[in-house]
Structure formats: structure tokens, C-alpha cells
């Protein structure tokens, strides 16, 4: 659980664990799976994937990581690399989804978290309606709590772009939230 505004985790992991992952150490992989499963699931859910599908998507992301770990060059890049895999899987999922309208209607999302309150569901519904490039910056900075530089590394963007997108994303979220609450625009 992350406190508001605090990072849930920093990108990267211990070099020794990384070495063991690349060597195919099953224990190391178990550790990585347990550590990253909730995070990848959260990423997928926050990007609008239904909880059941997000579970399967997270499984596939971890399996892809296992198959392609040789493509991740450094331990400090692992989180960003996993996010990029997740991003591709989410895009693929959306493209191939039978029910694309699920992503574009205001149908309330299903509960995905422990004792998820209505406010959380509402926030997810608003996030799902934002343009993808704005939503992911907002999620990483204001929900997951990464710093601007960490978000830049995760998304492969210049820090200045992250800052400008964050401004637009916050404004878009505020407007959508206000509209939801009946306060315009």
C-alpha cells in the first residue's frame, strides 16, 4: 500500500538478484513474481483492464519477462522494462478486446482491490476516460508515487515532457471529475 504521494517502489533491483534471474534461478524468479505481480496487476487495472483480464495479463507479462530476460540489460532498468511489456500487453488487449466499447463507455468498473471504496471506483472510471498518454503519466506520478525523473525513466520520455503531460493530465482529470460531480464544464 502506498501512501499518497509516496513512491510504492523505486525502479530497479539488487544486482545479485538480477544476475540470478538471468541465470535462470527459480528461487529468484519466484521472488520477482511475488514482488511484481501486484504492481503489474495495478498498472493494468488502472489502465482500464477489467480485473479478471488484468490477472491473466499480469501472468503473461511475467512469463514474457522470464522468456526474454536477456533483453533487459541492467537491474536498474527492470521496472521500466516490465512496464513496457505491460504497456504492450495492455495495448494488445485493448486492440484485441471483443468489447472495445467497455473502454469507451461510462460503465462502472468492477472492484479490483481490497475493500475498494466507491471513490476509488470513480477515480478509475475517470482515469479510463483520459487519453492514454495522459493517464499513464498521472497514474505513475500521482497514484503510484514515482518521482518525475522515475516516471521519465519508466515511460522512456524526457523529464520535461513528463512535466507538461502531468500538467495536462491533472487538468483533464480535474475537469472530468468536476463533470462527473455535476459541476461542469
Amino acid at each position: 500500500m502506498a501512501a499518497a504521494g509516496q513512491p510504492t517502489a523505486r525502479p530497479g533491483l539488487a544486482p545479485e538478484l538480477f544476475r540470478r534471474l538471468r541465470a535462470g534461478d527459480a528461487q529468484a524468479w519466484g521472488q520477482l513474481f511475488r514482488g511484481y505481480a501486484p504492481r503489474i496487476y495495478r498498472w493494468a487495472v488502472l489502465r482500464g483492464v477489467a480485473p479478471g483480464d488484468a490477472e491473466e495479463l499480469a501472468q503473461e507479462v511475467l512469463a514474457v519477462a522470464w522468456r526474454r530476460i536477456d533483453r533487459c540489460r541492467a537491474p536498474e532498468a527492470l521496472t521500466a522494462w516490465l512496464y513496457q511489456i505491460t504497456r504492450r500487453q495492455v495495448a494488445n488487449h485493448r486492440r484485441k478486446a471483443w468489447f472495445r466499447r467497455v473502454f469507451v463507455t461510462d460503465r462502472p468498473p468492477e472492484r479490483a482491490f481490497v475493500a475498494e471504496p466507491e471513490g476509488s471506483l470513480a477515480a478509475r472510471a475517470v482515469l479510463a476516460g483520459l487519453p492514454g498518454d495522459l493517464a499513464e503519466v498521472l497514474i505513475m506520478r500521482d497514484v503510484e508515487g514515482y518521482t518525475r525523473d522515475e516516471v521519465a525513466a519508466l515511460l522512456g520520455l524526457p523529464p520535461g515532457t513528463v512535466a507538461s503531460r502531468l500538467r495536462r493530465a491533472r487538468a483533464a482529470f480535474e475537469a472530468a471529475w468536476a463533470a462527473r460531480e455535476g459541476r461542469g464544464p
Binding site: M1, A4, A112, V114, P117, A122, D142, F173, W177
Partner: peptide
């Protein structure tokens, strides 16, 4: 936005 607090604290 404070509405994101609940999401930030949501547990899997």
C-alpha cells in the same frame, strides 16, 4: 487531485 488518494492506497 485528492480523489486519487483512495487509488494510491488500494491494496491488491
Amino acid at each position: 487531485h485528492p480523489a486519487l488518494d483512495a487509488l494510491a492506497q488500494a491494496e491488491v
